[in-house]
Design a protein around this nucleic acid. Structure first.
Length: 285
RNA sequence: GGCCUAGUGGCGAAGAGGAAACGCGGCUGUCUGCAAAACAGCUAUGCGUCGGUUCGAUUCCGACCUAGGCCU
């Protein structure tokens, strides 16, 4: 089975640095799993780093006003993985976007249902109550599966309606068994105080590197309501304290998501040696 | 020393004699193509202190304490 290594964890924890080390050690190539670094021209604020001596795929895939989502990530990454394996290299997924990684490893059947922008536009102005009623009328199975939080979430309701409408008549493509991987999940974590400190420092570095100028340029060129413009930093600038705070809150949300993934082997920053050992044992087996 | 104003949760802030809005922050969580997104739940037995009036006061009265302002 195809082996792929995953390095995940909250923002600013040092995922890329670790992944680069591992890539050098085990002849790997990196694939970024980051929903914001796919945008061209969004470099400083999103903290793209381009390590020397190691290939890093998955950055600068689209323009800020182009569509991108977990589904795009999955298709993209599948091809990349195949190419990398053909070169006899180890694919290493690095990133903090849990949904992307999870969709790659455990692709949900509905991932193939494309967004219906016309429908979305039409549903957007509706109230939560109206969306709920519409979804219930459509059959109610999905509705019954949704929990309290999601039932009050307009985005999730609209998506559910979208999927439901698509389903009318057609069956989902059956699951592809050729897409199973032998994965090793490495998670990096740290206690909150230390991580908060790292985040603050990192943001300040980005400001010094010209984050504000980058933001102003983008602002002049693109509409503020683009999904790409909702990235942390682009919404908070020029209030740097607010930016830092948002980034710290985001780290918490990331951990909430990753905590649920049982396969992750968690390490702290000073355990690089243990990580290398674990990877070696898995990779050479 | 005198006068005035204010004193509500970590912060900001509303309120009225009869079950302490809301915002922020914090914590926990949700997750089947927008995920650095979107969403949910929890977060003051308490309204500066002590007395009084009242069936009932955080809300009315008095004293005191603290802060700010003005005056001599």
């Amino acid at each position: 089975m195809k082996k792929i290594l995953i390095v995940c964890g909250p923002t600013a924890i040092g995922k890329t640095a670790l992944a680069v080390k591992l890539a050098k050690k085990f002849a790997g190539e990196l694939i970024s799993a980051d929903s914001r670094q796919v945008y061209q021209g969004m470099d400083i604020v999103t903290g793209k780093d381009k390590p020397a001596g190691v290939k890093l795929h998955g950055l600068d895939l689209v323009k800020p006003d182009e569509e991108f989502s977990a589904a795009h990530f999955v298709t993209q990454t599948r091809t990349l993985i195949n190419q990398i394996i053909k070169r006899k290299k180890l694919p290493i997924i690095v990133g903090g976007t849990g949904l992307y990684i999870n969709s790659l490893i455990n692709p949900p059947a509905t991932l193939s249902v494309k967004p219906d922008w016309q429908l979305r536009k039409q549903l957007e102005p509706k109230t939560v109550k109206e969306l709920q009623n519409q979804l219930k009328k459509l059959g109610g199975q999905r509705w019954r599966q949704m929990n309290h939080s999601d039932r009050l979430n307009p985005r999730r309701l609209i998506r559910a309606i979208e999927v439901n409408k698509f389903q009318q008549g057609q069956a989902f493509p059956s699951e592809r068994t050729d897409l199973k991987f032998n994965t090793l999940w490495i998670g990096l974590r740290e206690n909150k105080a230390i991580l908060d400190e790292r985040i603050a420092k990192r943001v300040k570095t980005r400001v010094k590197a010209g984050a504000i100028a980058e933001w102003q340029q983008l602002k002049a060129k693109y509409r503020q309501d683009l999904e790409s413009m909702t990235g942390i930093g682009y919404r908070q600038l020029p209030d740097i304290a607010a930016w830092i705070l948002s980034e710290q809150q985001y780290a918490v949300r990331q951990m909430t998501y990753f905590k649920k993934i049982r396969q992750i082997h968690w390490f702290e920053l000073d355990q690089a040696g243990d990580i290398a050992k674990l990877v070696k044992a898995w990779y050479t087996k």
